[in-house]
């Protein structure tokens, strides 16, 4: 118990930015769901089970068009394909997490991944419980925020047209964050250019898979160059 308390206390401060962000984005999600006629129960269930910000926003379109579960599954796989690479990064860290491991992997959203990947717990704190509480706190914030939004949405009526843009804004801001580091610009640019080209060629409903293939191909071709630049950067040239 003592050990868990220490881990919780150590984990909490790292999650404060996520608390703010998830309240905002969660409330926006709950309001959006409510505006489409899906009440607090559905929002709660979706946020509890899926815990996937961008996929949940896109899923609003699955819920407001003809019923097509296979399309929903495929689109979710495509949108969340980036998690595959979080998983690869976490293989070592989660190796000995034991009974906590399934939940740690279940809750590995973008924010949880980036905190756990970049934070070392204090010496006297068990790292697996520390990671567990970061995951659990972030998960709770997301559920709480979206439930609040669903409740507020049913109490106040305001024009929600354009609220969906919050997702675009989130990705633009994350993109700008990456852009600040010189090292990340090339892959970021490859992502945008391949997608724009594929969008123009294949059209809005079929461009994601060609884009992913294109991105992997270009990243593979430019690998040697990237590795060399990284070495130069590390040598301080």
């Amino acid at each position: 118990m003592e050990e868990k308390n220490r881990a919780l206390k150590a984990a909490f401060p790292h999650t404060i930015p996520v608390f703010t962000g998830f309240m905002f984005l969660g409330i926006a999600y709950g309001v959006l769901m409510d505006s489409k006629g899906y009440g607090v129960g559905w929002t709660f269930l979706m946020s509890l089970m899926a815990l996937a910000g961008s996929a949940q926003y896109v899923a609003v379109t699955f819920l407001t068009s003809a019923f097509n579960p296979l399309y929903a599954l495929l689109m979710t796989l495509i949108i969340n394909a980036r998690h595959l690479f979080y998983g690869i990064s976490m293989l070592d860290k989660y190796k000995d997490a034991g009974k906590l491991k399934p939940y740690l992997i279940f809750g590995m959203c973008d924010e949880t991944f980036s905190i756990i990947y970049s934070t070392k717990p204090p010496q006297d704190v068990d790292p697996h419980w520390f990671n567990f509480f970061i995951t659990l706190l972030n998960h709770s914030y997301w559920v709480l925020g979206s439930v609040l939004g669903a409740l507020l949405g049913s109490m106040f009526f305001f024009n929600t047209k354009g609220l969906d843009f919050v997702l675009t804004a989130l990705f633009v801001v994350i993109f700008l964050g990456h852009w600040k580091t010189q090292q990340n610009r090339q892959p970021a640019l490859i992502g945008v250019l391949c997608s724009v080209i594929c969008l123009l060629v294949f059209g809005p409903s079929n461009f994601i898979i060609p884009s992913m293939i294109g991105i992997i191909a270009v990243l593979t071709i430019t690998r040697k160059n990237y590795v060399r630049e990284k070495e130069l950067a590390e040598e301080g040239v």
Partner: peptide, 9 residues
């Protein structure tokens, strides 16, 4: 990084 670029598009 590339995935976020794709998501913006």
């Amino acid at each position: 990084y590339a995935a976020i670029g794709l998501l913006v598009v």
